[in-house]
Design a protein around this nucleic acid. Sequence first.
DNA 1: ATCACTTTGTTAAAGGTTTGTCAAGTCATA
DNA 2: TATGACTTGACAAACCTTTAACAAAGTGAT
Lengths: 214, 214
Amino acid sequence: METKEISQAVIGRLPRYLRYLGDLKDEGVERISSQELSERMNVTASQIRQDFNNFGGFGQQGYGYNVAYLYDEISKILGLDHKYHFVIIGAGNLGKALGNYLNFERRGFIFEGIFDKNPDLVGQDVRGVKVMAIEELEHFLKENPVEIAVLTIPKTSAVDLVNVLVDNGIQAIWNFAHVDLDVPEGILVENVHLSDSLMKLSYNINRRKAEKES
Amino acid sequence: METKEISQAVIGRLPRYLRYLGDLKDEGVERISSQELSERMNVTASQIRQDFNNFGGFGQQGYGYNVAYLYDEISKILGLDHKYHFVIIGAGNLGKALGNYLNFERRGFIFEGIFDKNPDLVGQDVRGVKVMAIEELEHFLKENPVEIAVLTIPKTSAVDLVNVLVDNGIQAIWNFAHVDLDVPEGILVENVHLSDSLMKLSYNINRRKAEKES
DNA sequence: ATCACTTTGTTAAAGGTTTGTCAAGTCATA
DNA sequence: TATGACTTGACAAACCTTTAACAAAGTGAT
């Protein structure tokens, strides 16, 4: 009942903590202080303590944090102790890349199906799953429990598809289409706008160049 | 000479403005007020005015902003009036997906080469460019002007490769490997950590579920 | 059991970002 | 040309995030 609303700034840092803690576990490190972790990660120790404290104190004075325990706790916070089922819409190279990415499976994200409207792609194999025609999507969603849809299709198709998805039980959309999706209240969207990321890079290249010249 | 350091929060929003302005241009809209744009984009009008003002006033009282002019100005700020040359390291599905993405070309990002260490992939065609062996990379970079390297390879290979890249003139790295790269001062890195993005989604699915149950 | 040392959790201050407000400039119309 | 409606740019206030500082609690050597 104690929902004190963690900021997305904090949530956004958790996966990185998890990555470093995983590395530490692999190295056989059992405990770590915020100070030591801060040096590895290039952030302030204060921020680390503050972040972890949002969830109520995983450490111990004079000792620091237990790596394995902290790793497990952050995993739970991120919901990685659950299983999620996802389908990919769009079997181009990007869709295939995501279907083939084994690390998602390790984190509990289970690849259930992949769809495309191009008949030439239908029947192709992506990690043991056959590409299905987009017409089969609705039926498939009704028959199989799927929480997440991954959209790797052009923007117009993406917008048209949203209703089919939410009407058939999809709760969250991982959106690679270059458009802001308009979804009903309660449906989650996480955008990955690759060209936005590339433009940020281009801005910074340019700015650095301008600085040098001045 | 007047470098008043724009915050990355603002820069991060510019690509989205550009997207909406492009749509407006396509719709034939000539001018728009911050109020109207804010309704379309679901942000405050105040933020829009503040953001644009970082670069010194593109609008006019009583009129609003000229869509085409604003579009061009933001393009310039993002450095999209320049050409950049990039190579992709890693010719798996993700590397191929990025090589095939025509929109990058439209924005001035020119696909020059793609490399892989897997001999089975060498010689394959990605949008008219043949996959080269990773051993050829160094020579290629010395012969061709390339500013950006796109890394779509596993993390250990990525870390090992950084020195080769920066020693041969690469200025910026668009990093899809799941690791924080340690680069010399002055080299830019833009990370795209897909699994981090997926974990954020998983956190939010979970949180929403917890809220419903309470 | 004590003591010097370590390190957290917490609070407060500093720094940044976003939003609200309004004077001043522009447009459209009579 | 005068007027009313509109809209920006600028400033201030509100809000949020990060950093600094330190008391309290635990560790570990003797």
